[in-house]
């Protein structure tokens, strides 16, 4: 400004820099205009991104050239102000202390203030408990499966024992139960009866070698959606149910025992029975709780 004293060093912007910045800005404008045009036409995502991103990149180039060549180049030195204001710190402390000087029952008041503060804060936080059944962990123990419940596929059709081939896998659900419930879904596989190694108390849980396990991994709740079943058994990996999240591997022949991976509990098994028209029914409850472990989860 005329008359005002000079504050910044003199600087002459090199011509190339001015032209470069001008071009950058003009091209950026063109790109942005292009973006508007493409948006109005067919709004192809790739072109939109190229043009808008390009516009910004050009603005970036212009700014950087401005910074490095157009404006005065300075390296300034400044003193660091001290962060130490002991006198003021003392004054602040004295203000606080002197304000309370007249109080004699300070311990009583402090205690009461503390109690009031905590309880009022607590009172304000307590309504958050309405967010969910905080105290009702029994909900985690609810069971969709009980004796007599029919197995259905995802279209609601009953599962027929004869339709399940050896070495295949089928998902199944509890009839009449919300399919989203973790305790409702099963993975049904069929092994050759000679492959089974179930414990004695589960000897009749797998009619014709058909086994039903919870589909929800006991590690972290993902759906166990992989069956490994060898076509030619010697030397190939043995049958297993595997979870794709962290590769917990369960042995369907051995009551869902964990044979690899981080799961801490075997996969719960559902005893099956075959009804009169060959339909599959649950013959009892699941062998254990479904889903990931928690503090009070039943083991075994």
């Amino acid at each position: 400004m005329r008359g005002a004293p000079r504050l910044l060093p003199r600087h002459r912007a090199p011509r190339w820099a001015e032209l470069a910045v001008a071009w950058a800005l003009i091209l950026a404008a063109a790109a942005a205009a292009g973006f508007i045009a493409v948006y109005a036409l067919d709004a192809d995502t790739q072109w939109l991104g190229l043009l808008l991103g390009g516009a910004f990149a050009l603005l970036a180039a212009g700014s950087i050239v401005t910074a490095k060549a157009l404006v005065p180049q300075e390296k300034k030195e400044q003193e660091r102000e001290s962060l130490d204001h002991d006198a003021e710190d003392l004054d602040v402390t004295v203000y606080v202390q002197e304000a309370g000087e007249g109080i004699t029952r300070s311990r009583l008041l402090k205690g009461a203030a503390g109690a009031a503060g905590l309880t009022v804060l607590g009172a304000l936080l307590v309504p958050l408990a309405s967010c969910g059944p905080l105290l009702d962990v029994e909900q985690l123990r609810r069971m969709a499966w009980r004796r007599g419940r029919r197995l259905v596929d995802e279209n609601g059709r009953p599962l027929i024992a004869d339709e399940i081939a050896i070495g295949s896998m089928t998902p199944a659900f509890a009839e009449g139960v919300d399919r989203e419930r973790l305790d409702a879904s099963l993975i049904v596989v069929r092994l050759r009866p000679d492959e089974l190694r179930l414990p004695p108390q589960r000897a009749d849980w797998a009619p014709r070698g058909i086994l039903a396990y919870s589909k929800i991994c006991t590690h972290a709740g993902c759906a166990v959606s992989m069956l490994r079943y060898p076509l030619f058994a010697p030397k190939a990996p043995s049958p297993a149910l595997v979870c794709p999240c962290h590769y917990s591997t369960f042995d369907p022949a051995r009551a869902g025992k964990v044979i690899f991976g981080p799961a801490g509990r075997p996969l719960p098994q559902l005893p099956l029975s075959i009804g009169e028209n060959g339909e599959l029914f649950a013959a009892g409850r699941m062998s254990g709780p479904v889903g990931p472990s928690w503090w009070g989860v039943e083991r075994g």
Binding site: G167, M169, L227, R228, A236, P237
Partner: peptide, 14 residues
Amino acid sequence: RVGPYVMPAFDSRE
């Protein structure tokens, strides 16, 4: 249908 190597085999019933 075949279920090669360790792939499950699904027949026409499933």
